[in-house]
């Protein structure tokens, strides 16, 4: 069953149209503000789950619960907002996407399990522009 849960996320990335029948399920478009605001285009390096949510806004289609999706997208949105000021803008946007991607992994990856305080690690990533794998990562003690 678990394998089946995660198949749509991969298929969404490889064959976007293949998820459309699931994503267009009637009555499931308004699952909350967090998904309504997550309509950005997928970017290189996006987690497939993030990309799937951006595209289809339906947590179940992406192998997630609504709670997991809310946490993931809220964190992503808050981080993008916090780092989008002029003072923080620079020519290299790669670190922002890096931090967002690693935060999403920190929140959602179970095999191997990621330990550590994901929110604090996000803050450190914003400051140092590199994810602190010494604090948050696979195999790190909680």
């Amino acid at each position: 069953m678990n394998a089946i849960r995660w198949v749509p996320a991969g298929l969404c990335l490889a064959f976007i149209s293949g998820c459309s029948t699931v994503a267009h399920a009637p009555g499931r478009r308004s699952t909350g503000e967090y998904l309504a605001q997550a309509a950005d285009a997928c970017r290189p390096g996006d987690l497939s789950t993030v990309c799937c949510l951006k595209k289809h806004r339906l947590p179940e289609a992406c192998g997630m619960t609504e709670s997991e999706a809310a946490t993931l997208m809220q964190g992503t949105r808050e981080f993008e907002k916090a780092t989008s000021t002029a003072a923080n803008d620079d020519a290299d946007d790669g670190w922002r996407q890096h931090c967002i991607d690693m935060y999403a992994r920190c929140q959602s990856t179970k095999k191997p399990h990621w330990g550590g305080p994901c929110g604090s690690c996000m803050e450190r990533c914003k400051g140092q522009r590199q994810w602190p794998f010494d604090m948050c990562g696979p195999g790190v003690a909680q």
């Binding site: 678990n2 095999k111 195999g139």
Partner: peptide, 13 residues
């Protein structure tokens, strides 16, 4: 190595 140890797992949960 932690990822390598799980690369053959059939699911991600």
């Amino acid at each position: 190595q932690a990822y390598l140890d799980h690369v053959d797992d059939l699911d991600d949960t």
